[in-house]
Nucleic acid binder design. Structure first.
Lengths: 110, 110
DNA sequence: TAGATAGTTAACTAATTGGTTAAATACTAA
DNA sequence: TTAGTATTTAACCAATTAGTTAACTATCTA
């Protein structure tokens, strides 16, 4: 799917890529630095970065022989806003649980 | 990947499934009702529902010949919380843009 | 019991994904 | 110019995904 939200969520569906974003939240990093915590090959890392780049979640520069990546958080904001519309639903569920427990207690009194 | 966050984001990476969740935010619905807006076959719908169910995003009952689905928003809450840790980053980016524009203006004065 | 409606399962396909190894490219430093 | 470091590209592979059609199961109603 080409729509932004789909490629954002697809990019976030992989734990390696989420870990990369977590690292990048603290500032730019080279490919080597991003690869360090993982035991997968460099080409695999390169592909993950490409997915993140195509999703608009990172931007890359060239600096000598390095290709530092920098987080671009705008798509995360959009994803967050999409989820936000469901806040009522997850709070509602808790409300319903509260209500259920309250009713149960009332029934036990009688 | 089996981790909850990965399967939540993977489930959200498809526009058909997101539309289903949007419909379910307003209350339970049968498979037929959920299928209605789409031109894909029933087995395809059935598979999407299975993805949502395995991700814990819906729960299903049997009621006569219907299998109504109901939204379970808890995984959305977790996803939202994961994204929330990046709020600073997307707000920071805007701050940096502000700063950049401010500097640009100062330079033009001198 | 037969027909209609609701939904799933099976078997298949084409495209995508996440990984690999080997080779190529880009740049630095001696 | 040669060696070393950083990174990407190419070619391949196995598993997964999103769809299909055909056949099956479950339930209600006449």
């Amino acid at each position: 799917m080409n729509d932004t939200l789909s490629s954002t969520f697809a990019a976030l569906a992989d734990p390696t890529r989420r870990a990369m974003l977590t690292r990048l939240a603290q500032g730019p990093a080279t490919v080597k630095e991003l690869a360090d915590p993982f035991k997968i090959s460099m080409p695999a890392i390169s592909k993950h970065l490409k997915v993140l780049e195509h999703a608009g979640l990172i931007e890359r520069r060239r600096e000598a022989q390095w290709r530092p990546a920098q987080l671009q958080a705008a798509p995360l904001k959009d994803a967050s806003q999409w989820l936000e519309t469901y806040r009522q639903n997850w709070e509602e569920n808790l409300d319903r649980l509260d209500e259920y427990l309250r009713k149960l207690q009332e029934e036990q009194k009688s």
